[in-house]
Nucleic acid binder design. Structure first.
Lengths: 149, 149
DNA sequence: TATTGTTATACTCTATAACTATA
DNA sequence: TATAGTTATAGAGTATAACAATA
């Protein structure tokens, strides 16, 4: 029997950007999930909070559009963040269908801590220096933007 | 209210390789899943079949090691592939705990069709030319290998 | 009629523990 | 004792449809 060495992969997978991206995405997800777990957050929570911190969303619909997360999922995620004291929801007087979502002081603090953890995880995940790292990130960004169209 | 344009993302996410890899991984997964759905396969099925086709695994344990897929998951996945007529399982006479998994003719045909679909999906997902595409794929491979240690 | 938020549901993926048969 | 395969279970992520309130 062939004894597969740890880093062997069939060529159809090991040379497939598709397969490698899926695999890397899962690894990145797992690392970041473990990193922020002590904050009481999972990745989609962090994404929401950071979006609010950047002022890029004020309603649940905004969050849904920016993050491409289903509206129905946001409800439970925001319930959890509200219960943790990281956000508040209040009806928009100008359009009473909408909820205005606001970061609390406590929410801002947890975002700051999350950012530091995100930076740590990223250094471990992508061990590249200076311009090489920036080029790689820029390439990822281009592919994501292409996919968003 | 700010009207977020489609491709805007908070800097904390849009410049995070971690976030972008997660997102790209999910998109790649979804595209490939949709692509091979007509073959009656999902990505983990294809990965198994292609690993068998490459001769890199003969038992379920081998598949588990190469693909880093839990042994318990393989059982159901192989059940489905066996029922579809793409693989056969038979007890290894030399070690009767082991199942020897073999691709059928039908299995080889579906692998060939899957490869073509994988190539199509990849072209759409990573619209780069020649050396740029190869460099990007090589970088992904390096990061995956780092993560595998 | 269309939109925002909500509820309910179901399916996949994943991880885990416990079992069996063999070694 | 340890290993290969199996079974059962439960949690997280995701997608969908249907509903209430409001526009």
């Amino acid at each position: 029997m062939t004894m597969p060495r740890p880093n062997e992969l069939p060529a159809d997978l090991g040379r497939s950007a598709t397969y490698l991206m899926v695999r890397l995405g899962k690894h990145a997800q797992a690392s970041f999930t473990a990193g922020i777990e002590p904050l009481g957050l999972r990745p989609p929570h962090y994404d929401m909070l950071v979006t609010l911190a950047a002022g890029m969303a004020s309603s649940q619909k905004d969050l849904s559009d920016v993050l491409r997360v289903d509206q129905a999922r946001l409800v439970a995620l925001l319930d959890e963040m509200e219960e943790a004291g990281f956000v508040t929801r209040s009806q928009d007087p100008a359009d009473r269908r909408r909820n205005i979502v606001v970061l609390t002081k406590e929410g801002e603090r947890v975002v700051a801590r999350g950012r530091r953890i995100a930076a740590d995880v990223e250094r471990e995940l992508v061990p590249l220096k200076g311009s090489q790292r920036e080029e790689f990130t820029a390439m990822l960004r281009r592919l994501v933007d292409t996919a968003r169209d």
